[in-house]
Nucleic acid binder design. Structure first.
Length: 847
RNA sequence: GAGGGAAUGCCGGAGUGGUCAAACGGGCUAGGUUUAGGACCUAGUGGUUUUUACCUUCGGGGGUUCGAAUCCUCCUUCCCUCACCA
């Protein structure tokens, strides 16, 4: 049995690739002085979402992700494209800061070590990145442009400050993320979280909500991701109705203006900034007590909470009938959606009804009589629909049903609108109120403005100086970058506040004493434009040169996980649109095509994670089986967009396959290929080319397997054809393909060789000739069994109709022959013999 | 609650109107080879059997069609994402 020294082969080729700079775009000289001439090629920009460099290094899941992109990059390169395939690191961020502190190190060297390790591992995976184009967000050379864009956005009025609710830990004296504040308890010190209103920096993402939504239609993205973004942006059309609260107008957003006569109470969000202003003195104590127990600001937490509320003591006036409606403060209303207060209709909304069950002093008014059509509740099973329906409606309008009806119906108890269909009533009531100036049609979005400031150290400093006289003063462009100071103390609060020397600066406006903003940017700011930086990653004058952007952008193929559907992918689209409006770019969508890879699970079928101990380390796998076996195995497991389980046994099969290829190359006689092999090779080339092109790698591995199995049976094969077979294999198994390519006597790189030509369809040999003689045989058989008839009726597949030669058949059997297509409605077929017909076999009736 | 996806042998999964169900891999069984193990090679792996054949089967029910794993419809189960957005 062959023993292959994978480590040696892999090292050899990885070294050669790097030395000769063969994966670099135009203009990068290699060790031997050669420069790739790509000047006449079409560009192809392929990109994987850049990783956050974790100290534990890459695991097999990363290997899968990057192999998916690498295969495409290699395939495109061989197909004559100038490929830009870069890799960088999302180096800043909370996880790195926390991990470093835990390890007792400063985040900078800590992250640098991790990056170094990532790069080593990526090279060992055989990934064909252009390392001359790399970047890491932790260096001022990169993040100064975050600051630059911040200033530009600020100038354009897209950045502002506002107060928002945050989780505050009184003992740690800092803001806590939702993840760390589960159950309203601080993860670090177990003290109770308070909700505080704090000011922060916001980007007006909502300004682009409509465009972000509409732009989705143009994108070649998985439908799933588009749907997720659509939900996230969450456009909903409704009516804004003014209720009077303490003599002040308070607009309320609703999608159900048709139920306005059924409003029996209002609920204002417990997190609403104006809440205390409407709380009466008698209720103050109770509300304060209530607020203490609301828990965290996490919406997930909110969703799990029991609906609770407390009276504020204030009343709202219903504009349609002047009724006084009590206002509650509730834990289930979202503060920054609509106006933070909702009108509650317990008869026709589940949430409102749930609330009422606990506070039974609230009355319920039914204002919609359910209609039969579209009735959306379950009726008793032992009754007919009509009976059950009658009974339900009777009970419902009389207030005897404990539940909300949310389906369609006609209005009752609604003044002059009684008897109207409720969908029509929405419009009519809105118009009626609009005439009185009390309502208007509005569009609301779930998408919020993006709060991007963090009270953390390991991020881009926000370039602002606070001056007592001048207020918030932007750092002038010429003073950028504001470099993150290295000397800080980690522990309580924001580390940046511990470096006095850094904080105290002169105000750029008045020259007086100023202090630096100590908040840093969310790392999603970094990742919102990094794809624009790769093509011009060393530019010290500008974030990027427009000529290079014009050549390379937008990204032709973006690859990454579905977990980024709502955050990163929306922010990146938002940035692109803003930069377009600020005349930095002339396109408005960054990623034309998006591919979501599936997740790699451990052999236990669970998500790979340290705590489960099911992480597969590529270093070990490479040692045992060779990187190419691993790549082949990962890609052969399932379609790339489906999840798959790692299996130690499974990879053995791939190793066997690789060994087989080696043994073929050693044992086969080079000479002339057989006809069969030439035909097999050409059909494989056709299929594999198609499969690589649309990410159906799994199918490509199957075809390759068939090809080499077939090759193993051949007595001899031409060197050229063996070379072609290797080319087809090379995107998945680049190292061994290079090795065997060289053994074949080539002295160039298979990675840069031309992709084999696809022969146009050599369809299977025509069967038409055989069909007629087969029919004759069948007819003779039937004649013998059944007896005689004057006319022979044949029923054939529609697509075979043209192949039937009635003259020839008639002559052979000496009878009249009539042919019908099996789907011919006018055919003569008294015994249903058409059913007997199959492709290649006719139905026969003797009449 | 909303949206998306899925259900095929022992397992992972091909097949998305006919000529073709179960490719390809794993596992298992038998045989060969081997000092042994591993590796490798061959055959088998829904049922019947007269084995170049016939039947059964693609989560369940109904439908469209000459013909359905494939299209439509209802149901069941599972996975993912978002989730009290008024």
């Amino acid at each position: 049995m062959i023993e292959i020294n994978f480590a040696k082969i892999e090292k050899k080729w990885q070294g050669k690739w790097e030395k000769e700079k063969i994966f670099c775009t135009q203009g990068v000289p290699s060790a031997s002085g050669k420069v790739n001439d790509n000047s006449k090629k079409e560009k192809y920009y392929i990109l994987e979402m850049f990783p956050y460099p974790s100290a534990s290094g890459l695991h097999m899941g990363h290997a899968l992700n990057y192999s998916i992109g690498d295969v495409m990059a290699r395939f495109k390169r061989m197909n004559g494209f100038e490929v830009l395939y870069p890799m960088g690191f999302d180096a800043l961020g909370l996880p790195a800061e926390n991990a470093a502190i835990k390890a007792g190190e400063h985040p900078k060297p800590f992250t640098e070590k991790a990056i170094k390790n990532y790069i080593r591992q990526m090279k060992e995976l055989g990934l064909s990145y252009d390392w001359t184009k790399t970047l890491a967000t932790m260096y001022p050379e990169y993040y100064r442009w975050n600051q630059y864009f911040f200033l530009k956005f600020l100038e354009a009025g897209l950045i502002y400050r506002k107060k928002a609710s945050v989780n505050w830990c009184p003992s740690c004296n800092t803001i806590i993320s939702n993840e760390q504040a589960q159950g309203g308890i601080c993860e670090r010190c177990d003290s109770k979280i308070e909700i505080r209103q704090l000011e922060g920096w916001y980007l007006k993402t909502t300004k682009y909500a409509d465009e972000l939504l509409n732009g989705l239609d143009k994108l070649d993205w998985p439908e799933k991701i588009k749907a997720m973004q659509k939900n996230w942006i969450g456009r909903s059309e409704g009516t804004e109705i003014d209720f009077e609260v303490n003599g002040v107008k308070w607009p309320i957003f609703t999608t159900r203006p048709d139920t306005i006569f059924g409003v029996t109470f209002m609920v204002v969000s417990a997190q609403h900034e104006k809440l205390m202003s409407i709380v009466t003195d008698e209720q103050k104590k109770e509300v304060e007590e209530f607020l203490k127990n609301v828990g965290s600001v996490s919406e997930k937490e909110m969703a799990e909470l029991e609906k609770k509320g407390v009276l504020t003591g204030s009343y709202a006036i219903n504009p349609v009938n002047g009724e006084r409606i009590p206002i509650y403060a509730g834990n289930f209303v979202v503060a920054d959606y609509g106006s933070g207060m909702v009108m509650a209709v317990p008869a026709h909304d589940h949430r409102d009804r749930d609330f009422v069950r606990k506070y039974n002093e609230i009355k319920i008014i039914e204002v919609i009589k359910p209609s039969k059509k579209g009735f959306n509740l379950e009726l008793p099973k032992n009754k007919s629909f009509d009976e059950g329906y009658e009974e339900f409606v009777n009970n419902f309008v009389n207030g005897k049903v404990d539940g909300a009806y949310t389906g369609p119906g006609t209005l009752i108890n609604s003044g002059q609108f009684n008897g109207l269909d409720n969908t029509k009533a929405k419009e009519k009531i809105t118009v009626w109120l609009k005439k009185q100036g009390k309502a208007r049609k509005v569009v609301n979005y779930k998408l919020r403005d993006w709060g991007f400031s963090r009270q953390r150290y390991w991020g881009t400093p926000i370039p602002i100086i606070r001056c007592e006289g001048c207020g918030l003063v932007p750092v002038p462009e010429k003073d950028l970058p504001v470099v993150l100071p290295e000397k800080v103390k980690f522990g309580k609060g924001n580390p940046l506040e511990t470096n006095e020397g850094w904080i105290n600066v002169k105000c750029p406006k008045c020259g007086g004493a100023g202090k630096r903003e100590t908040e840093t940017m969310d790392t999603f700011f970094d990742s919102s434009w990094y794809f624009l930086r790769y093509p011009d990653n060393k530019n010290e004058k500008k974030p990027f040169d427009i000529k290079k952007i014009k050549k390379w952008l937008p990204v032709d193929q973006y690859i990454g996980g579905a977990e980024h559907a709502c955050m990163h992918l929306i922010y990146a689209r938002f940035f692109t649109k803003v930069l377009r409006d600020l005349k930095f770019l002339d396109f408005d969508e960054p990623f034309k095509v998006l591919f979501n890879q599936g997740m790699l699970h451990g052999s236990d079928g669970e998500k790979m994670s340290k705590s489960k101990g099911n992480i597969i380390n590529p270093d070990e796998i490479s040692k045992k089986y060779g990187m190419d076996s691993a790549r082949y195995f990962l890609l052969s497991l399932a379609a790339p967009d489906k999840p798959r389980d790692w299996s130690d046994k499974g990879i053995q099969g791939s190793l066997r396959f690789i060994k087989k290829i080696f043994s073929i190359s050693e044992n086969i006689k080079f000479g002339k290929s057989s006809e069969d092999f030439i035909s097999k090779l050409s059909s494989t080339t056709r299929d594999v080319t198609e499969f690589y092109g649309n990410f159906q790698y799994r199918k490509a591995t199957i075809k390759l397997k068939e090809l080499f199995d077939f090759l193993a049976e051949q007595k001899e094969v031409s060197k050229e054809d063996f070379g072609i077979s290797l080319k087809l294999l090379s995107p998945i198994c680049p190292h061994i393909a290079e090795e065997l390519w060289e053994k074949l006597g080539n002295n160039d790189f298979i990675s840069l060789s031309k992709w084999p030509k696809v022969e146009k369809s050599e369809k299977k040999k025509e069967k038409g000739v055989d069909l007629n003689s087969k029919i004759i045989e069948d007819i003779k058989y039937v004649l013998e069994k059944v007896g005689t008839g004057k006319v022979v009726y044949l029923y054939v597949m529609p697509f075979e109709l043209g192949k039937i030669d009635t003259g020839k058949i008639g002559k052979a059997i000496g009878k009249e022959v009539k042919v019908f297509a099996v789907n011919d409605s006018k055919k003569f077929d008294p015994e249903g013999k058409a059913k007997r017909a199959k492709p290649g076999k006719v139905g026969i009736y003797l009449g």
